[in-house]
């Protein structure tokens, strides 16, 4: 009985938080169209979150492409279809691994820093200070971060895709001796615009989700040092799980 009671309370709390996060995001987004414009702060966030995640995205993209080529080659070689390697690598990266792994990396690198930064601003009363200096923290702090992550993720993931396909080419063609023409030709032949759209829609949705969850967790963190630490961990976990769940839903739409 205890278990059911706890489960019920947790569900209720989850629903309450979901509603609260949605409200906070909507309030922040509504301020997008109100003066003062936050362009400069959007650029600063694009720098911190987008440019800051560049290195890790390139590294993970490269190794993802490489391992896919290696693994794919040995599987395909059994059927004598090594020429399909490019298509296999490209399809996996563009449709699934790029958006999901890219989102994970951005959650780890940028999302956690969003939550921690906003949480610390709450603890040290910096958000109250902004409030008292007649600057709306929702407009100044939350809005630019949500928008920046939403726009940065598609750019980062596209880069992940390109680097991954390139790294797969290096391993497949230069290391394992797949025909270079076949790699690209099959990739181009098998992947259509349809697959691209699927990937891009995912990244935009994931980016928005990461922005909303991580800003919310920071803004509503219990204003103590432990509270911020806990919120940061929770933000990473909740954002990652949400990405996987939404990924399944979107994949079933786009198949």
């Amino acid at each position: 009985m205890m278990v059911f009671g706890r489960l019920g309370r947790m569900t209720l709390r989850g629903i309450e938080q979901f509603g609260d996060a949605t409200m906070l995001a909507l309030q922040a987004l509504a301020l997008m169209f109100r003066r003062p414009w936050q362009g400069k702060h959007f650029v600063l966030q694009l720098y911190a979150l987008g440019v800051g995640s560049l290195a890790i995205i390139i590294i993970t993209g490269a190794f993802t492409g490489m391992v896919l080529a290696l693994q794919g080659y040995y599987t395909l070689a059994k059927f004598g279809s090594e020429s399909l390697l490019g298509a296999g690598v490209g399809m996996s990266i563009i449709r699934e691994l790029g958006p999901v792994l890219g989102a994970f990396m951005v959650i780890g690198r940028a999302g956690s820093s969003i939550t921690a930064e906003i949480g610390i601003m709450r603890v040290t009363e910096q958000t109250d200070a902004l409030e008292m200096m007649a600057v709306n923290p929702k407009q100044r702090i939350i809005l630019p971060r949500i928008v920046a992550v939403t726009l940065a993720l598609p750019l980062l993931v596209s880069l992940f895709d390109v680097v991954g396909i390139g790294a797969g080419y290096l391993v497949g063609v230069d290391l394992l001796g797949v025909n270079p023409g076949a790699y690209m030709a099959e990739l181009i032949a098998k992947i259509g615009m349809h697959d691209m759209y699927g990937g891009w829609v995912k990244t935009v949705v994931f980016g928005f989700l990461i922005g909303v969850i991580c800003t919310y967790m920071g803004y509503r963190a219990e204003p103590t040092t432990e509270g911020v630490a806990k919120a940061t961990t929770q933000a990473v976990v909740i954002a990652s799980v949400s990405v996987l769940i939404i990924d399944y839903v979107l994949t079933s739409f786009f198949l």
Partner: peptide, 24 residues
């Protein structure tokens, strides 16, 4: 300037995917 470069590189990646791979 750095952010500008970042966006340009990202857009290049998108267009390469669309034009070359997606054959839009």
């Amino acid at each position: 300037i750095t952010v500008g470069l970042f966006v340009v590189i990202g857009l290049l990646a998108i267009s390469w995917l669309a034009v070359k791979v997606g054959q839009v």
